[in-house]
Amino acid sequence: MTALARFPLSSRHLRQVGAVLPGLALTLAIALGALFLHERLGVGALSPLLLSIVTGIVIGNLVPLPGVLLPGIAFSMKRLLRLGVILLGLQLTLAQVAELGVSGIAIVVVTLVATFVVTRRVGAWLGVSRPLSELIAAGTAVCGASAVLATDLVSRARDEEVAYAIACVTIFGTLSMLLYPLLAVPLDLGQVAYGLWSGATIHEVAQVVAAAFQVGDEAGHTGTIAKLARVVLLAPLVFSLAFMRRGDGAGASAGRPPLPWFVLGFLAMVGLNSAVELPRGLLDDARLATTLLLSLALAAMGLETRLARLRAEGLRPLALGGFAWLFVSGLGLALVLALTTP
């Protein structure tokens, strides 16, 4: 007896799979196209995640989407997003984080926590919605678009708010990528200090790599490790945010925000990669799969984003993103100078 015969698919399951396929095929095509363009263009700022959401927005606003696509779009935006965040854990180990030492870890933790807390409060003062403030705060403090996506599973922001937050972290992260190498000499930063500053404050992993390695291999290595240490902190940040929102009754009209159990999967992958030396080929495949899954989710979000509603958000969220960028850059630099200068 075959495995398929032992576990037969019911007609309901077949209908569910069939309903998902059209929309999934569209988001997959967008994500694969973004990966292809990223490889051909070779520009770190134009990540597959950014290209996916931009392509989705263009298609979603130019072409009316038939209803048959909606189940697959929703599947990409929810189920595949969680899987992508889980696999993100295979990109780092606890041993890598330990390489930073006590002062390096302190710089990363203090910068991340302070940036997130202060950005949320300034967002409230500016009149930016709480979900959008949280997305901009997480994207700036932790790891760009990936953190925005993970945080949104708790914050439950509108698609337009997610798109706006990703635009903010992309714009200001790119500015850091371009400006930081020019500041290394005037600021008299050694390679380790510069790497720590880059890794603790620049938004996306690719942006950190591009900025840090321009100064030297030691700076690039230190910057990459510091950035991965921030990614580890994504898990406790999202869990803390979920418990806070459940405790204060946020989103009561739509039910309490769910506990982000997918974060446990993320931590399990970090633990596995820390305890077992996994084959390099497997890790490379997992990294590609993570990028593809997150690109699928962003393509889906782009397809459901309407530019008219995006424009309605105004300039206040952009001002918040700019403030968060200046805050994280300045605080990170101050801590690096205070804790690493002989």
Rank of each mutant, 00 (worst) to 15 (best):
K78C: 03
K78W: 05
K78V: 14
K78N: 15
R79N: 06
L80F: 01
L80E: 02
L80G: 03
L81P: 04
L81V: 06
L81S: 03
L81K: 05
L81Q: 05
R82M: 11
R82P: 14
R82H: 12
L83Y: 03
L83I: 13
L83K: 00
L83T: 07
L83Q: 03
L83S: 07
G84W: 08
G84E: 09
G84C: 11
V85Y: 12
V85D: 13
V85R: 14
V85A: 14
V85S: 15
V85K: 14
I86E: 09
I86V: 15
L87I: 13
L87D: 10
L87W: 06
L87A: 14
L87P: 11
L88V: 03
G89E: 12
G89H: 07
L90S: 11
L90I: 01
L90A: 13
Q91R: 13
Q91V: 00
Q91C: 00
Q91N: 10
L92K: 09
L92F: 12
L92V: 15
T93N: 11
L94H: 10
L94V: 15
L94I: 13
A95V: 02
A95N: 02
Q96D: 11
Q96H: 01
V97E: 01
V97F: 03
V97C: 04
V97K: 01
V97A: 13
A98W: 04
A98D: 03
A98F: 00
A98H: 02
E99M: 08
E99L: 10
E99H: 12
E99Y: 02
E99T: 12
E99I: 00
L100I: 11
L100G: 13
L100Q: 09
L100V: 11
V102M: 11
V102N: 08
S103T: 08
S103P: 04
I105W: 13
I105Q: 15
I105R: 15
I105P: 10
A106T: 15
A106D: 04
I107L: 05
I107K: 04
I107E: 04
I107R: 03
V108K: 06
V108P: 08
V108M: 08
V108S: 06
V108Q: 10
V108R: 07
V108W: 05
V108E: 09
V109L: 13
V109G: 02
V109T: 08
V109A: 11
V110K: 02
V110N: 07
T111A: 14
T111F: 02
T111P: 05
T111Q: 05
T111D: 06
L112I: 10
L112K: 06
L112R: 04
V113K: 05
V113G: 03
V113N: 04
V113Y: 01
V113R: 04
V113C: 06
A114L: 09
A114I: 03
A114V: 10
A114S: 12
A114P: 00
T115G: 09
T115M: 07
T115E: 03
T115F: 06
T115W: 06
F116E: 08
F116N: 09
F116P: 10
F116Y: 15
F116R: 09
V117Y: 07
V117W: 11
V117E: 08
V117R: 06
V117D: 08
V118E: 07
V118I: 15
V118Y: 01
V118P: 08
V118S: 05
T119I: 09
T119M: 07
T119P: 08
T119K: 09
T119F: 07
T119Y: 05
R120P: 00
R120S: 02
R120N: 14
